[in-house]
Design a binder for these strands. Structure first.
Lengths: 212, 212
DNA sequence: CACACATTGTGGACGCCATCCACATTAGGG
DNA sequence: CCCTAATGTGGATGGCGTCCACAATGTGTG
């Protein structure tokens, strides 16, 4: 007999959509996308299962919202990483450091919040959703847009030729995303930080070198 | 009242484990890992749901078996791609072509059988399972081992220094795997073959160039 | 050759989940 | 102040994974 269920005094909750989103995100953080379960989310919020249907069409809609929130978190982590870059001196070095920061932040997020990272990519996206404001960080840019911006910077700084620019985001993204998933899900799971940092560094070198 | 259910004459099935594995693989091919459902697999085989438990500890065990089968398919596709490489002339060119074939086969599999590809990486693996014979192709090597072999070839041919060799499989794998998932699950979903081939080619160039 | 026993398949039940319909409660606008 | 639309509740349905008891069958032993 749990006295726990956070009973409301009011019949209305007042902010149920956000509360469910938060609960769902917490579930995702704990157990990945499979753990985002409607009934459990409503339970945690202290509301009947059906109440969720007033705010989300179905479980998948909730999962999509959680996914967007996770992407937004990822964007913020990348932004934080980019904020540590000193923007003085050789412009081409700065541009390269800003690109590198995208990868570093991406990989840091994957390793710090593996389940949330998995959730961020659990629902198939497309070109549209990859630029949806819901998935943006503090700068208003999504992870993909932050990457694109960094690559534009490379061109401006003359590090990358305009000819090689189109589609370069997908090459860089592929490499970083691939390593992230191998570290989180794949055979590299549970690799210790010194080794992971080495691999990450070498991968970013490969991009830096191979993109040109 | 479906007259369909393939009734057996014998009480014993005879090869239920394999039949379930085949049914599960078919489900995966149609709908990815989530579609690998015990009850549906038993239904297709014409057996009671519980019968599955004589051969698999639980649903997850079946999924793991399907996953291994999918990895094995992937290995075969890579092998097929490598078989098209003419092994004459400049040894370094051959070595590089053999590495390229790994990537090409990998990406071809992902695009040809997207759901099966997703399933192949649905269950978290580790260093051990990545070399399990269950995941091997006709040569007895798993996808990861085929890649390692190709990289060893690069060193032998003098294309890659021994110093850069250790861990190189994870760099190359990251890039290819990342692109594959972006094409299957991510924002590149539904990209048309001419464009995907272009991207794939450029990615493999990036690896070829950036690994050294 | 018969019979006990381990193996393999069946039937039925339980609890969890997503989802639907009908109903209850409440906030706000006419 | 009351009517209506929005929001939360209760109860039901059907699917799923899994467990237990039981039935059918293959097999090795005396």
């Amino acid at each position: 007999m749990p006295a726990n269920p956070p009973k409301r005094s009011t019949y209305r909750h007042g902010d149920l959509r956000n509360a469910l989103l938060a609960a769902g995100t917490e579930l995702a953080r704990e157990g990945g996308p499979e753990a985002v379960v409607l009934r459990e989310a409503t339970r945690r919020v202290g509301v009947a299962p059906n109440a969720a249907y007033r705010h989300f069409a179905d479980r998948d809609a909730l999962l999509r919202a959680v996914c967007s929130a996770a992407q937004s978190r990822l964007a913020v982590v990348i932004e934080e990483e980019q904020d540590t870059v000193v923007r003085e001196g050789d412009p081409s070095a700065v541009a390269r450091a800003l690109l590198r920061a995208v990868g570093t932040g991406y990989l840091r997020f994957a390793q710090t919040e593996p389940e949330l990272f998995r959730t961020a990519f659990a629902v198939p996206s497309d070109q549209e959703s990859a630029t949806s404001p819901e998935r943006a960080g503090n700068t208003g840019l999504t992870p993909l847009q932050l990457l694109s911006q960094a690559l534009d910077g490379l061109v401006e700084a003359g590090v990358l030729t305009a000819e090689r620019r189109p589609g370069a985001e997908f090459l860089a993204w592929s490499a970083v995303h691939g390593l992230a998933t191998l570290l989180v899900d794949g055979p590299l799971r549970g690799l210790a930080p010194p080794k992971t940092d080495d691999l990450s560094g070498r991968l970013l070198d490969m991009i830096d070198h191979g993109l040109r």
